[in-house]
Design a protein around this nucleic acid. Structure first.
Lengths: 337, 337
DNA sequence: CGATCCTATCGAAACGGTTCGATATCAATG
DNA sequence: CATTGATATCGAACCGTTTCGATAGGATCG
């Protein structure tokens, strides 16, 4: 592959002159510039970014770590962030965790080896060991969606607790008293917030939570399916089900259908974060949506500030909490008599 | 950030010894190795991959160009390819075209500047100018999903033509005679193949295609919605609709619902490539699925062969055509009397 | 006319690594 | 004892750039 040396030789000038001409830094005569341009085309020169970055001591790469690329939430998040980042002649180098927390640390150090200018990540782990690593990483990081306790990193999320509250309140107002909650892993930040929201809204509505109806289904459609099957087959079955993410909502709906119940006539279903894409799921599921575009915009903005060195590190971490939006579908109705 | 020089100084050895020890190339005494390891930990050394790659003349980066990251098809494709690639201490550097063909060329040259070891891409454009650029790129490329005529690049796809045929045959066997086809842009490779499949299966079944019922909706749910609204409001409305991708299938179903028709009682709907994720769309849409895992596996395999220099370039391009799978849902029935 | 200041160009030193060809030490060999 | 051959370590060149300081040839000025 052609190097700057080839261009210089072909144009009959020195290497430094080529560099000055190509980068527009330093004065170059019209004539020389023309010869250089011709040479570039002749030898098909493409500047080596690795060499440029090495020399300049900065990289035009921004790392992005996704919790689960197959989930449309992350797909849209990535797409929108990419739109913002790649405008500034930067590129995203993306790693997918495939929901496997063990890959998280390895991925981060690999990105650091690449000397990325910064990392935007949706973390999975939330434990002191991980927080310690994050703090020692020495690369600007913006967390999205999920927090890691014990770090002072910029953090962009939506109000997961409020989202769960909104749906719970909605179900309670419809008259439901036995509401089942199908939630994610107990040790995950987002799952905790959503569970809090559910419980607080239940308390607020004067309803008590039956421990039997509080399920942990690890964000998996299959586990949700099994649990809802069991729940709906038992005598004290709920009249409404709140699922804490899109996959589990789908699993729940499937289970309800397969048992011959009808939604919303026999049982109401609401799901958090059931992405717009599934809006024609029939019945359309009542949900709270995260404002993905807003999350992506703020995260990208903050990241670019870090990259440009504009982020005034006054010790205070920045947090942006976006408001989720209640989208009423046709999956909820008053409980059957 | 600590460099190899710092490690050397801290351990009291030369730079080259550190390099030899860390890479396991060349003999290093137990004692020295221990001192070096200690020094690495002490100064928190992380090798600079840009420098390593520059010197070694190779990069551990593989480029991936996605047609539309927000579409779950690409999300799953990316996730699965990443799983294969990142096993070999490589990383994926991903760019999203957001369905904008104009970004395609720029993205490719940017990836080349990064000296990626290869590029896996789902192209949008299919024209001679683009093919020429691709041929001159001088970077190993594996095309996925969509072909570019006039190149000799490795190509992994599924049998789009056959997929459309299967669905058309299925609808014809159910007794439908007026089948509408909602297709993608006419200049796109995949769209052409699917249209061919539709027409050939129609001919095979002895049905004629009403030009009025052959819609171009650019893979957009909105356009499909509008067109199906129009179609279903006209006197000669079809009894079945075949949509050429997931978005358009959703648009079509929505339109049918909004007009008060019932699917499949009043009209049957089948869609190509309606991803598993939407399997609980009610009624579950009859579809042909692309074997994404297979596509990803073959593409990754071939890419790694290129990266390792094992690809015997004997002039012949490699093509892998996977068989799509007919998944029968509940969205199709015999036409109403 | 010598000093001064642009303008255009160049050489050389980095950037952070790898790697090849020394060199030094020491035990084994003839 | 002089060779030989490992073994362990090092110095220096190089990968493809950028960039700083130097140089040289005018034009401008007092």
């Amino acid at each position: 592959m052609a190097t700057i040396r080839d261009v210089a030789r072909h144009a009959g000038v020195s290497i430094s002159t080529v560099s000055l001409a190509l980068n527009g830094t330093g004065p170059v005569s019209e004539e020389t510039r023309a010869r250089i341009d011709a040479a570039v085309a002749a030898v098909r020169y493409t500047p080596n970014l690795m060499a440029q970055n090495l020399k300049r001591g900065q990289s035009k790469l921004v790392g992005m770590v996704l919790g689960d690329a197959a989930n449309p939430f992350f797909g849209r998040l990535f797409g929108t962030i990419d739109k913002h980042i790649s405008g500034h002649e930067h590129m995203l180098i993306v790693a997918n965790l495939a929901s496997d927390p063990d890959r998280e640390l390895r991925t981060l150090t690999l990105l650091k080896r690449h000397r990325v200018a910064g990392i935007i990540m949706t973390p999975l782990r939330n434990d002191p060991e991980f927080a310690a690593h994050l703090n020692e990483l020495d690369v600007p990081v913006v967390l999205v969606d999920q927090d890691v306790d014990g770090t002072a990193l910029d953090f962009v999320t939506s109000d997961h607790r409020r989202g769960a509250e909104m749906l719970t309140e909605y179900l309670a107002r419809l008259g439901h008293r036995r509401i089942a909650y199908v939630g994610g892993q107990r040790n995950m930040w987002v799952a905790e917030r959503r569970l809090e929201g559910f419980r607080s809204a239940m308390a607020e509505a004067g309803l008590e939570v039956d421990p039997e109806l509080e399920i942990v289904a690890d964000y998996s459609a299959d586990l949700a399916y099994e649990n809802v099957m069991r729940l709906m087959s038992s005598p004290g079955r709920p009249t409404a089900i709140l699922a804490a993410n899109n996959y589990m909502a789908i699993g729940a709906l499937q289970a309800v259908n397969d048992l011959g119940f009808r939604c919303p006539d026999d049982v109401s279903i609401a799901g958090i974060d059931v992405v717009a894409w599934s809006s024609i799921v029939m019945p359309r599921i009542t949900t709270v949506e995260q404002p993905i575009d807003e999350l992506a915009r703020v995260a990208s903005l903050w990241m670019m500030e870090h990259v440009r060195g504009e982020a005034e590190r006054d010790g205070e971490r920045r947090c942006h909490v976006a408001e989720p939006k209640l989208v009423i579908g046709h999956s909820c109705a008053p409980p059957p008599k």
